[in-house]
Amino acid sequence: MNVEILAAADYSLVTVEGRVDTTNANEFEKSMLSVVDGGATKIVLDCAGLNYISSSGLRVFLIVQKKMIAIKGKFALCCLQPEIKEIFDISGFSSIFSIYADKEAAIKG
């Protein structure tokens, strides 16, 4: 797994690549929470390079979404690979996250 964080003027862009699973979900959670706790009101998570996720990873997505909703912020996901989108569909996550087809739309949205 590789996580990159870019703080722009009015949003934070996080890029996650590789696998988010039981072995590294804690690390992913720390990175995401550092952005949330840093005061971001809009987080865009680019998932183009994310090719595997298990329930440990989904858990982190839900934690961030709950926190962002609590502060009336925005958590936008983009560029999910079909296999990842399928897991989101099965879990009912597709209806509780804002998912965009491309990064530009997620930044604007």
């Binding site: 298990s54 858990r59 839900l62 897991i87 099965i90």
Partner: peptide, 14 residues
């Protein structure tokens, strides 16, 4: 809804 969804509990369901 997001607010009501418990964290975790998806493993066996998947």
């Amino acid at each position: 809804s997001v607010e009501d969804r418990p964290i975790g509990g998806l493993g066996v369901f998947l």
